[in-house]
Amino acid sequence: MVRYEIKKLIPLKLCLIILLLLLLQSLSVYIRPLKDREYSETLYRQFCEHYEGIYDKSIQELLLSRKIWIDDVIAKHDETQSEYHLGRITLKEFSAYMDIYTEAMAQSSTVNYLLKKCEYYDSLNRPAEFFCDTQWLDMYENDGFDYLLVFAVMILCVPAFTSEYAAGSRTVLMTTPGGREKTAAAKLIICTLTSFFLTMLFRTARLVPVMNAGAMKYAGKPAYDLLNYPFGTDISLIGAYESFSVMKALEASCMASFICLLSVLVQNRTFVYFLSAVLLYAPAMMMDYLPDAAYVSSSYAKALAVTPYISLIRVNISCMIRIGVYVSICIAVWRARYVRREI
């Protein structure tokens, strides 16, 4: 029976659509508008590769001396310009100075950022590693609401029950021993498990840009090495990503069971799509105003992904409870003895 339910729920066309969404997910990082960084990415990578390794004070001292040099060069700009205008220095001398000045200006913001990083490492009071974390930072900073994944879960789960109502096959199913609880349970299990694994696939697809940039070699580095992401534990970068991925996958399973419940309550496929979209996308967009709703909402709160202040255990327990409630009500409504009046 499970084999037939899988064939019903996951036809070839749907697999192709989901593959397309996965591809879009991988490409979405590249088509995102360029982030306005406070530093030069090229220079930052050069510095990081040069100083890659265990952080120590010498790196900060080097950077400080560099900053002093930069500040000196910038400070001399107005004076040098005046001297040139007054003819006290030649054009060649002025040009040479301007080359140094341009280099100092280009490095200024990057050196400031690197010094900020050094201050952060000093505040950790534990060993830290200096490496080029741009790709990982990007990934975590953009790890918010997953519109594509929510859409994929919707197109997977909405037809699970609504197709039976639409076709009229529910009536026949209700007259068989296995068409009630067993069929509903099979559908719910397939939807929740598929959503779980689909999420893990989508999460893996998000790692593609990181892999392409050669940043996977830093995957084992401690997550607290990332500036502004003090996880407070010794979890690695990839470990933190995996933890959040499992949490998101559980949320996706919760979403799937929620959509199934909506389907048996509403029964009309179009209306279920509409309601799912409203109830899943809308709360995520209000997360800035209602952060605690993350524990009760069936949507991917932006807050869930990046802040270490969300309790993962609480979120996971909340997911389990919600899945249990949705599944129970869904099965009860599915097997209820009523038929839409068609007189």
Binding site: K8, A166, A167, G168, S169, T171
Partner: peptide, 11 residues
């Protein structure tokens, strides 16, 4: 049971 329009699965 055979309803008037059983709605079996087209695929």
């Amino acid at each position: 049971y055979l309803p008037q329009d059983p709605g079996f699965y087209p695929g």
